[in-house]
């Protein structure tokens, strides 16, 4: 595959390159640079920000309050990723080994929610989880069933079911994020498992390893690139999630994106918000760098 040198094709190169590059420069790099500069500034008037080169915003970001929110966001995102992986892996396996006829439809079934509006999905889940929603009714029915079973064996019935608060707490945030991000995890897992040489699994089973041992010794190591891709594709948006914690969380389930939003829409402390934004971006960069380092190591190992 011979790439053309731009010097020999200056005119087509200019025609092709100028549009996208100018757009990125003007409507991405310039705005990002302004945010970066603002993060070293301070409010000098009601609607004025002077860039003084101060590090106060970053100093403030290392206060315990903000550090703990950062830590919490990371913990929530990690938990969501692990849950998505545990739920998603068997699903991806099932799709991989499904019959030709079923596989495409299973894939579409996973992809359709992925294409559906995020806000609508969050709202639908909230409707189900409200104090009068079906989740509560289902739990209530199970509770009644348990109570009935107890009377059956001659014990005191349980006290009457009181609806539990499923929404507006940390549990709701984790569940909501899992709900939203599950398709993100399944698709890369599937594409990794699909490429896997199935005869290796057969060989392992033939040679006497059980299904579990084959899974952990053969399938998981071979699917590792896909697992890492799925982890990143889930972890990164979950870390920067705004909507789910905002709508489904309680007062104590704020994540870092909610704090950033508040600096801009309510607290009107743009420089501090800019500093927090860039800290979040740096965190993403670290995650991406770790991932690509892993990838390089894996490649080096193959050689």
């Amino acid at each position: 595959m011979a790439l053309q040198d731009w010097k020999q094709h200056k005119r087509p190169f200019a025609a092709i390159a100028s549009g996208p590059i100018l757009w990125l420069l003007l409507f991405f790099l310039v705005p990002m640079t302004v945010v970066w500069l603002y993060s070293f500034g301070q409010n000098s008037g009601p609607a004025e920000i002077s860039i003084t080169g101060t590090l106060d915003n970053y100093k403030r970001a290392t206060e315990w309050l903000y550090l703990s929110i950062f830590g919490k966001s990371l913990a929530v995102a990690a938990l969501v990723t692990v849950i998505c992986l545990v739920i998603g892996f068997p699903v991806a396996m099932a799709i991989t080994f499904a019959s030709e006829k079923w596989r495409p439809w299973l894939l579409v079934a996973i992809m359709l929610p992925f294409w559906t509006n995020l806000l609508i999905r969050t709202y639908a889940l909230m409707m189900l989880m409200g104090s009068n929603g079906y989740a509560n009714r289902g739990l209530g029915a199970m509770w009644d069933g348990a109570s009935w079973l107890k009377t059956l064996v001659g014990l005191q019935p349980l006290e009457a079911w009181t609806p539990v608060q499923l929404l507006y707490n940390n549990f709701a945030v984790v569940l909501g994020l899992v709900y939203v991000h599950l398709p993100f995890m399944v698709l890369p897992l599937y594409s990794a498992l699909d490429r896997l040489d199935k005869s290796l699994i057969e060989a392992s089973l033939d040679l006497g390893a059980g299904h579990l041992r084959t899974l952990f010794k053969i399938v998981v190591p071979l699917a590792m690139p896909g697992i890492m891709a799925g982890v990143m594709i889930t972890l990164i948006p979950a870390l920067g999630a705004y909507l789910t914690p905002d709508l489904m969380g309680g007062t104590d389930s704020q994540m870092i994106a909610n704090v950033i939003e508040r600096q801009f829409k309510r607290a009107n402390d743009w420089p501090f918000g800019a500093a927090l934004s860039f800290l979040l971006i740096y965190a993403m960069f670290i995650l991406v760098a770790l991932q690509s380092m892993r990838g390089d190591k894996a490649k080096a190992g193959e050689r």
Partner: peptide, 23 residues
Amino acid sequence: VEGVMSLPIIVPEICLGVAMLIF
């Protein structure tokens, strides 16, 4: 150029939103 082009995909939505607001 390749790296910058993949940035809008990686950068969290909230940060891009903030950048657009300020811009």
